[in-house]
C-alpha cells in the first residue's frame, strides 16, 4: 500500500531485485534523500522499485532507518566510540559482502547517517596505519587483474577495430559491386559492337 507521504504512519512498498516487496514506514524512508527527491511530494502508485539491491540488503538498510527514526537530525559523523550498543551490533553482525552492499545501497538512497557511519568504520580500519600496514588491510586490484583487465579492453578495442574495418571493407565492396554492372555493361556493349562491326566488315 502506498500513498502520499504526509503522515509518518504511511507505509510504502519497496521492491527488491528478486521482485519481492516489503513494507517500510514513511518516517524511515524519509531518511533517504533519493526517496525524498523522487517520491515525497508526489507519492507512489505502486511498489517503489529499488531493484538494483537484493531484499536482504534493503531490509538491513531500512532496519537502520527504522531504528534511527527518533534520533536527532543528523549533524555530521559521530565518533565510533560514541555509537550505541544497537549501532555496534548492527554493524558487527554484517559480513563483508553485506557491508559493501549496504554501503552501495545507502549511497544510492543517499542516507547520510548510515553512509557516514559505514565510511567511518572503513576509515577506522586504516587509522594510524602506515602504507605497509594498509596493504594488509585493504585489497586493491592486483597487477595481474589490472593486466587482465587491460588485455580484455585491448581485445575489445581490437574486435571493435576489426568490426569497423570489416564494415568499411563491406561498404567498399558494395561500392565496387554497384560499379561492376555498369562497367560490365559498358564492356559487354563494347564487345557486342565490336563483334557486330567485325561481322559487318566480314560480310
Amino acid at each position: 500500500m502506498t500513498s502520499p507521504a504526509s503522515s509518518s504512519e504511511v507505509k510504502y512498498l519497496i521492491e527488491s531485485s528478486e521482485g519481492n516487496t516489503f513494507d517500510v514506514s514513511g518516517a524511515a524512508l524519509r531518511q533517504s534523500n533519493t526517496f525524498n527527491a523522487m517520491f515525497l511530494n508526489i507519492g507512489a502508485d505502486g511498489p517503489i522499485p529499488f531493484t538494483d539491491y537484493n531484499e536482504a540488503t534493503l531490509k538491513k538498510v531500512f532496519e537502520y532507518c527504522e531504528h534511527s527514526v527518533n534520533e536527532e537530525n543528523y549533524s555530521g559523523p559521530k565518533h565510533q566510540d560514541d555509537l550505541s550498543k544497537w549501532d555496534l551490533n548492527f554493524f558487527n553482525e554484517m559480513d563483508q559482502k553485506m557491508f559493501i552492499d549496504v554501503i552501495n545501497a545507502s549511497n544510492f538512497l543517499d542516507i547520510e547517517r548510515l553512509t557516514s557511519y559505514c565510511c567511518e568504520r572503513i576509515a577506522r580500519m586504516l587509522r594510524g596505519k602506515n602504507t605497509q600496514e594498509m596493504i594488509k588491510v585493504i585489497t586493491l586490484p592486483t597487477a595481474e587483474e589490472l593486466e587482465a583487465k587491460q588485455k580484455v579492453e585491448e581485445k575489445k578495442a581490437a574486435a571493435a577495430k576489426k568490426v569497423a574495418e570489416k564494415a568499411a571493407e563491406t561498404a567498399e565492396k558494395t561500392e565496387t559491386l554497384e560499379e561492376l554492372p555498369v562497367q560490365q555493361l559498358v564492356q559487354t556493349t563494347r564487345n557486342k559492337l565490336t563483334r557486330k562491326y567485325l561481322s559487318f566488315s566480314n560480310e
Binding site: 559493501i100 554501503i103 552501495n104
Partner: peptide, 20 residues
C-alpha cells in the same frame, strides 16, 4: 563481522570512498 580483513575498498562507490 566488520571490520573485515582485506577490505576491497575499490569496490565502493566514489562518494563512499570520499566519505571514508
Amino acid at each position: 563481522m566488520v571490520p573485515p580483513k582485506l577490505f576491497p575498498i575499490h569496490r565502493l562507490p566514489f562518494l563512499a570512498i570520499e566519505e571514508t
